[in-house]
Structures are given as C-alpha cells and as structure tokens.
Computed example of a mutant assay.
Amino acid sequence: MTIIRRSGAVAALLLTTGLVQAAGDADRGATIVMQGDGQGGAPCLACHGTDGAGNDAAGFPRLAGLDAGYLAAQLRDYRDGRRNSPVMAPNAAHLSDQQIADVAAYYALQTTRLMPAEQPADLLVRGEKLVKQGDWDNYIVPCESCHGTGAQGVGATFPALSGQHPTYLRQQLEAWKNGTRSNDPNQLMLAIAARLSDEQIQAVSAYLSQQPTQGSKP
C-alpha cells in the first residue's frame, strides 16, 4: 500500500508540474492546422503551410520534422505569455494542452522540400566555424554542443536548427540578444546571443539554413 501511495503522489506531482504531457494525435492536429481551433485561432497553414515549410520572407519558421515535444513547449509558451509574438499569441490563446499536443504531433511527422536561397561563400565559411567550433575567444560555444551533430536537434529541449529559414534564425538570435525572448533552458541562449556580433548572427543563420534536416526532402 505504501508503494501505491507513493506512486500516486509522484503522479500527482508530475501532473501539477506539467512534466506529464498529453499524447498528440496527428489526425486531430491536421484539423486544427487546416481549419483553426474553432475559437478564433487561424489555421496554422495560413503561415506555416500544411507541410510545415514556413515562409522565409515573412519570418515564419519551418515546423516540419521538429521534435513534437519542442513544438508543444513553444505553443504553450506563446499561449501562457512566456514567449512573445503578436502573431502567435492570439492564435495560441485558446488552445488546450491536448490541441497543442495534436498540432505538434502533426507537424513533427511532416516533410518538406528544402530549397534554401544561395548565400555568399565567405559568409557560409564563417557560419560553419561558429556552428562547429564556436568562438572561444569571445566565450561562444559551438552550436553543435547543445543542438547536436549537424545541428539536427536533441530531444524536446534543443531544437533542430539545420534547414531552418535564415530570416527566422536571425530574428530569434536578435531577440535573445536584446532580451525580448527568454524562454530557453537556464537562459543559455540569452548568454550566448549576447556575445554574438550582428555579423556572426548573419553568418550562423545563413550557414544553418543551407544544411539538410530530418524534416526535409532532398
């Protein structure tokens, strides 16, 4: 009986701390993606497309193939005010945890054709060095040290950066640098981005946009 009570207490603690997340249903997520949530939230496809390709010119990120746990965490942060966006906040405002899990499950399963814009060769060289080697003279660690080999992502905490649109990457690095985004674990990105120059932000964003990703077709 003691074991049962302890198990129940642990389960209650996990539920109250949000560590137990609802399993997502991609089919239900597809309905929200294509039709909206029925409470005023726009269909996700309006900005991100049914395949999660996003839109570089508009700054809408690629969602295809990203970890479902990461996508769900970001949607909850938009909904609950931990991450700011005049576009996403009203569209996430009425989503339940289950709906968020469903949308995340849907986009995690998608693939999209990778067609990155050409970037100057010297910019790509500088970006590759930052991604793979960092800039230790300025206490900037390599992107791969957290985001994994090839910046393919590590679980729900460190998202895949490879194949992401350069405009979105640049916007987010700038947001961390100026403190308008702060929903990263232990404020790791706040500390790193604060040390990046504008030229380094441009270089790393350009390089990462050229790399293949699990959510892309060749």
Rank of each mutant, 00 (worst) to 15 (best):
L63N: 12
L123S: 00
M189T: 04
A30P: 02
G155A: 06
K129T: 13
A104H: 10
T157M: 12
I192T: 15
T157L: 14
A23E: 14
L45F: 08
D122I: 05
L109P: 00
Y139G: 01
V87Y: 07
R113W: 01
G54R: 10
L19S: 15
I4C: 03
P120Q: 07
T16R: 12
Q35L: 11
V154Y: 03
S182W: 03
D37R: 02
A121L: 02
G18T: 01
S216M: 13
T213R: 11
R79K: 04
G36T: 00
S197W: 07
A53W: 04
P212V: 05
M115T: 11
P185A: 06
L114S: 11
E174N: 13
D97Q: 08
Q74C: 06
I32V: 15
G153R: 03
N91P: 00
L208C: 04
P116G: 05
D56L: 00
A105C: 08
S145P: 04
T213C: 12
A193C: 04
C143D: 13
K217D: 15
N55I: 03
L71I: 14
C143N: 08
A206L: 03
G215S: 12
G40A: 12
I140M: 01
S85P: 08
L109M: 13
A73P: 09
R113C: 00
A105F: 08
D77E: 15
Q200A: 12
C143P: 05
G59A: 09
D51W: 10
S145R: 07
D37M: 00
G29L: 09
Q187F: 14
C47Q: 08
Q99S: 01
A73I: 05
D135L: 01
A93L: 09
R82A: 06
I201G: 08
K177A: 07
Q35G: 07
E128W: 08
Q152I: 04
E199F: 06
P90N: 00
G134E: 02
S85C: 01
Q133R: 01
T157F: 00
K132Q: 13
W136Q: 09
T2C: 04
A175K: 14
E118T: 09
T112C: 00
Q98R: 08
H147N: 05
G150V: 05
G41W: 13
A46C: 01
